[in-house]
Design a protein around this nucleic acid. Structure first.
Lengths: 348, 348
DNA sequence: CTGAAAGCGCTAACAC
DNA sequence: GTGTTAGCGCTTTCAG
């Protein structure tokens, strides 16, 4: 069964206007070679019939869909949805539509159906906006080298031959740790994110390296691992204080876990920032309203997304024009340290 | 210019396997009328060539794309992204792809291009997941009655003749207010969301009605308006305490603003819940880790999304089979009150 | 069981 | 300037 299309087709418009479909096509695509009178007449019919060309048919013949595939995961978390927010904006501006796929888990192993679904719909490019977790970059090595469409990756370690756009998490970790040292804290612990996450490893490595550079301690008993959730932060801070009772500051790998640290301190009567300095990561909107307001590392995910879209469009354009394939390069953006009360020690 | 497709076409598979394209089509679509030997031979070629049928070409001929349009707004906020999360899951499960559009503002006035973009790509249905704000439902009245595809709306007031899926915000407001009364609070203020939002109006109306029902005060000086952000909550609570100094509880229209109330209390040395009961709305993941943990109204946005997808698929299916058009009905889900410390008065 | 022909809605390439 | 022809990749219809 083939239901009647509600929308008008180019053929109907053509016969209504008394011209060929080709002429209608020319008018729709604003080609120069149509006489003003014809153009106007056709235009009128188009408006009257509310004719809207089928992007589908167009994609088929032009081998170009003006559609980008976006693969994400964990949309209910703030990071991924901010990124997606940036992608939709940038794509909209460039006149591209977005085909969205969300992985059921961060480390989904079978990504073939995802690619199949996107490619069968002729996307012009794919933005892989799934954080690098565990071995979830593994499946890519077995992908046919030339998928047929360009891919740009967001939030993972730079890799040769791939287009990657990400925030410099290591730098963010250094900024956070250095700031605490500068404020006079010397026994600085760390609550890490889940260490199968690339971002968590980067932040932790920065903490360790910075402390060692300053000749301060950063051993096994000076950190604990969480899983990004406030609940895990609560467990981690408890464990950490047992292991490291004279700790005077903590760099926490995200704001949600930092919230648990603040609550822990409040319950134990530990003064922040006097007795304990705290720095988080992410700058979620609530952070400025924690008690006390939280110093944190801000990542501009919106901008990352914008750049990723720009990069992929650049590649698509150049492929389209048959130019030499654009060199795949990595772009790394610097985060910003937002200093609030939780880490600023009153001068003695 | 028409670049060579990287993927194999049905024609190539057919000639490789020495059969006609119809036969390949039959194998791909698992039709019964192919001999086992032919089927197997074709199957082999398909796998070897990694043939993947073009969903585009299929959509064109079948007048059905197995694609849903999703329109959202404010993705960086937790509510919309949770909803989207539910939609991607449900759509994925049903084998539908998602074409995503995000409005630049909640009250975007010109939605025609949005519809055009979706319809020109032949979506089978549209999920309108934009909260009802101000007059942003107005443009719909001027839409051609029969758009050609079904629409299901999320998060707005039920309307005759439309499919709407939403949480009962009024009920949520009643639950919150009644709970405070039950706990012995009698002078209960309200921090509302922006009142051009339908949800904010519902929550506020419930607060007012419930108090009046119990013979308690709910006048103009007993509430203040925020804009959902923690910053606005801070302003609102300050203003409210000036207007209503002997207030003993607050029902706050969302958790982020409630956070500001908790912080305000902390700074002024107001004991929660002893001197001030607080109930929020949304149950963001951080709420359980506020100080003290926040009582709040939980909305199951994930489920709302799931039901919306089910509804639209039902309509699509029935349209497709030429059955009588399904009645458009509204589905309203009840929220849940999550009781934590911020509202539980110790028994005297 | 299999294939040939037609066509979904549109545009590229060529006539005139 | 404008129309004709062909065909994007696939499925439907109908003949064999």
């Amino acid at each position: 069964m083939r239901p009647k299309l509600a929308r008008a087709t180019i053929k109907e418009v053509a016969s209504e206007a008394g011209v060929s479909t080709q002429t209608v096509s020319r008018v729709v695509n604003a080609r120069p070679d149509v006489s003003p009178e014809t153009r106007e007449r056709v235009q009128k019919v188009i408006e009257r019939m509310r004719y809207q060309p089928s992007a589908l048919a167009r994609s088929l013949i032009q081998q170009r869909s003006y559609t980008l595939g976006v693969v994400t995961a964990g949309l209910k978390h703030i990071g991924p949805s901010r990124t997606l927010n940036g992608i939709t904006r940038a794509a909209e501006q460039a006149g591209y539509a977005l085909l969205l796929k969300e992985l059921p888990r961060f480390d989904a192993d079978d990504i073939t159906p995802i690619f199949d679904a996107l490619l069968s719909r002729h996307v012009d490019g794919i933005i892989w906006a799934v954080p690098e977790v565990g071995e979830n970059r593994k499946p890519f090595s077995s992908l046919p080298l030339h998928l047929g469409v360009p891919i740009v990756y967001i939030t993972m370690g730079p890799r040769d031959g791939l287009s990657v756009v990400s925030i410099d998490n290591y730098l963010g970790g250094r900024m956070a740790t250095a700031h605490l040292i500068e404020q006079g804290y010397r026994r600085i612990g760390h609550i890490a994110g889940p260490l199968d996450w690339w971002e968590a490893r980067q932040r932790m490595a920065a903490w360790k390296d910075t402390l060692q550079q300053f000749g301060l301690e950063a051993g096994d008993r000076h950190w604990a691992e969480g899983n990004w959730s406030p609940a895990s932060g609560a467990q981690a801070v408890e464990k950490l204080f047992k292991q490291y009772p004279d700790m005077d500051a903590i760099f926490v790998a995200n704001d949600q876990m930092a919230l648990s640290v603040l609550q822990f301190a409040c319950q134990r009567g530990i003064q922040i920032p006097e007795e304990l300095g705290v720095v988080g990561f992410d700058d979620i909107p609530e952070s400025a309203f924690f008690f006390p307001p939280l110093t944190t590392v801000q990542q501009d995910q919106y901008n990352v997304a914008r750049i990723a879209v720009e990069e992929i469009l650049k590649i698509i354009e150049s492929d389209w024009h048959g130019e030499a394939t654009i060199e795949r390069k990595s772009v790394t953006l610097a985060p910003t340290l937002v200093v609030r009360e939780s880490s600023v020690r009153p001068r003695k």
